[in-house]
Design a protein around this nucleic acid. Structure first.
Lengths: 170, 170
DNA sequence: GGGACTTACATAACCTGTTATCCAATTTGG
DNA sequence: CCAAATTGGATAACAGGTTATGTAAGTCCC
């Protein structure tokens, strides 16, 4: 019999780290969604990043948002389309460039953001921080280390180098 | 005016932790995929967890796999379907229960796993460990803390408690 | 033993991201 | 000034997960 499962991912250790990170991220978002729902926020959590970016950065184009959020341009097009349907943002051609579409918050969007910043975001922030354990910054630090490392030298390159070094033991 | 921006995104800070974890996980998987491709592994990285689970746990049903991997049952159905098409697993009704479908590795699947365990997994493992920085276990530990915390008390409950405590400052 | 629940899986529809490609507007260079 | 290259965005197709629901097999209980 398989005995106690669960350890399948654990057994893969660092190999499954990617899977594990994704799942944990998903779960965090789902939990945050519950808080948002309780606060009667009329948008899914996934739409908050663009709203926050527009709030802090002011009106900007699709491309700007794409860069600001780190999601691809089609993703931004879809998100902003949904937000526009929800009445939280509006958009129009840029004055100086007919190709660019400038997105800005509507009053409704600004109002929502104001409420969120005052009541909801701090709550989520505090709850997540608490869930992170004694030293909340440490997790973020570890993530940054990993992100930077991947940026600096891809895994494949590291693997190749390690393989070369290990070959004599083979 | 929003003044110094940043604080909207700061407010999102830990809400964005979910997004960040997911994105980092994605990137890790993409990097691992490169290594797998170079090793001529004929499956996407996302299919390795079920293979590894079957390898370590032996033949098991769809439901077992779902629990072992932490993905939903339809997800397992799809994954195993693809693996079966690829000839790496096979399946059949359980002897004692006509509803259950038991999945097991084919010889090809076992062979692939053997090769991976010998050559590829250790490489990925080592590369990821290196990328994680000086103390590779610490990140896993942090993740476990967060996972356990979410399990033990959902964010919404934490938020509710924190909100109650903070109300007198409102 | 036969009807009502329960269980295990399959299927469908959806969500949210991706890459690939197309179109229109702008810029550039001859 | 017009043709070519570039740029900003939209659209389509796909990926990999999810939830919701359907269906067949098993179990319970009168």
């Amino acid at each position: 019999m398989a005995g106690s499962n669960e350890d399948a991912l654990k057994g893969l250790g660092h190999l499954a780290l990617g899977t594990r990170l994704k799942r944990l991220g998903d779960r965090l978002q789902a939990h945050a969604q519950v808080i948002l729902d309780e606060a009667k926020v009329p948008v899914p959590a996934s739409h908050l990043p663009p709203l926050a970016a527009l709030d802090s950065g002011g009106a900007m184009t699709v491309g700007d948002l794409s860069r600001a959020l780190g999601v691809t341009q089609p993703g931004v097009t879809r998100m902003t389309g949904a937000l526009e349907t929800a009445g939280l943002v509006r958009s129009g051609a840029a004055e100086d460039d007919g190709r660019a579409r400038v997105i800005e918050l509507t009053p409704a969007g600004r109002g929502l953001l104001a409420r969120l910043k005052r009541h909801t975001f701090p709550l989520i922030e505090a709850a997540v921080r608490e869930a992170c354990g004694d030293d909340p910054g440490r997790l973020l630090g570890q993530l940054a280390v990993l992100e930077d490392a991947l940026e600096e030298l891809p895994l494949a390159a590291r693997a190749a180098r390690l393989a070369k070094g290990a070959r004599r033991h083979d």
